[in-house]
Amino acid sequence: MRRLAVWAVTAMFALAVYLLLTLWSGAWGLWSLSELIAGVVMALIVGLVAGNLLWERGGWRMLMPHRWVLLLVFSAGPLLWAMARANVDVAWRVITGKIRPGIVRFDPALKTELARTILANAITLTPGTLTVDVHELSGAFYVHWINVTDERPTPEQVCGALPAWARRIAE
């Protein structure tokens, strides 16, 4: 029963996004008939594949609208700034060839899957740091770092304010 509810809710979300993206696509009302059929079929498949992953361990938190606003603020502000600094830094390392690579471990103490996903994505998106693995149980991050300054770093040393923002958005 729960599986069915999860499937239906996820499929409805996927369909809503699809309908927003294909607005004014046809002469038949707002959407053309073929778009509607394709949308329903794809939404059902997406619900089947992603349903269980999405709602497990605190995924429902993202139903609160202010978290989406926070996600937008984070992407346009701190993430973009971190990306800009890292880009210039790595560009300089490409030219000079000064690298000190290594895989370090740190524990950002994030509990929900979603917060870990957001942080891992943000870390990988900034050049110079790359998430290689995340320990499922303890939540420890293994990050390939192009300039290892400390072999046992704190999360702030590797990725600055990003863990705090991941916690704000999804926990």
């Binding site: 000190r100 690579p101 895989i103 370090v104």
Partner: peptide, 24 residues
């Protein structure tokens, strides 16, 4: 990128010139 890196590590490719490899 993460899938590539994780796959490479599980495939046995060690990071070159690494000063530390905590995962190992």
């Amino acid at each position: 990128s993460h899938a590539l890196a994780r796959g490479a590590y599980r495939g046995g490719i060690k990071p070159a010139q690494a000063v530390v490899d905590q995962l190992e």
